[in-house]
Amino acid sequence: MYKELPVKKLDESTIRYERTKDIIGSFFTLVFFGILIVLTLEFDWPTALIAIWIILPIVDFSMSLFVLPYLKLKSVRYEMHALHLEIMTGIFLKKRTLIPIERIQHVAVKEGPLTRIYAIQIIEVFTAGTVHEIPLLIKNEAEELRIQLLEQLKAVKSDV
């Protein structure tokens, strides 16, 4: 239907948020692999496993800190059209969603403690059966999109 990609991309400052979130997640990964190292030593498992238990978290940490935030930055896009909202997500498996404005029931803004620190919000668009997310928007950009969606929603509802 649409050959060109949605225009709006994520802001580059969201990379800091993604890195911080991944560092917090990597702490739990390190604890898990630390437990595996202790179990390997305790139960006399092959010592080659210790090398694996050390290499895997290093690879995971490197990917999540240096590669994945940039891929996510390039892969998430959205665009507001006259009759629908277009959202494209997915790093490896791309998902492109067109949401007709008349199907939208309400719009919510989601944020947590970490997203507040980085002034990032997530827009949730609710239809009858599903919830669609536009993640990692800068606060003022998220507010503009929310207002624009609500204005178009009012225009569509008043036409019916």
Rank of each mutant, 00 (worst) to 15 (best):
I50L: 01
F126M: 12
I99S: 04
Q152C: 01
F126W: 06
A48K: 06
L68K: 07
M63F: 13
V76I: 15
R103I: 08
P100E: 07
E79S: 11
S64Y: 06
E79P: 09
S64P: 07
I104W: 13
L149I: 03
E12Y: 00
E143M: 06
M80A: 11
L83E: 12
P69G: 10
F28N: 08
E86P: 02
L136Q: 12
A82L: 14
I147T: 11
R116C: 05
A155N: 09
E143N: 06
K157R: 15
L137C: 10
L149R: 09
L150I: 12
V31R: 03
A108C: 07
E151M: 06
S64N: 14
L98H: 12
L39T: 00
T89W: 02
P113K: 07
T97K: 13
A51F: 11
V76E: 02
E4K: 11
K8L: 13
R116V: 14
F32P: 05
K72F: 03
L41G: 00
F66Y: 14
M80T: 05
V160D: 14
E12T: 10
I91F: 03
I52G: 00
A48Q: 04
I104A: 01
T29S: 09
L85G: 14
P113D: 03
E133I: 07
T127K: 00
I122M: 10
L136K: 05
I123V: 13
Q152G: 03
V67R: 04
K157F: 01
E133C: 07
I138H: 05
E12M: 04
S75N: 06
L85N: 11
A119N: 15
V131R: 15
F126L: 08
Y78G: 03
L41D: 00
P135Y: 02
K94L: 14
M1T: 03
E141L: 06
K74A: 15
L93T: 13
T97N: 10
I87R: 00
R103S: 12
G34D: 01
T130K: 15
K8N: 15
E133Q: 12
R103N: 13
K139V: 11
F92E: 01
H84Q: 12
V59H: 01
K72C: 06
E12P: 11
R146I: 08
L41E: 00
A82C: 04
V76K: 13
I15K: 13
A108R: 15
E12H: 04
D11S: 11
W53A: 04
L153V: 04
R103E: 13
M1E: 13
Y17H: 10
I134W: 04
Y70C: 00
L56K: 04
L39I: 02
E12N: 09
F126S: 10
S158A: 12
T20G: 01
A119P: 08
A155I: 10
K9Y: 09
I120C: 14
F33S: 08
Q148Y: 05
I58F: 08
I87P: 05
V31H: 04
I54N: 00
W53E: 05
H106A: 08
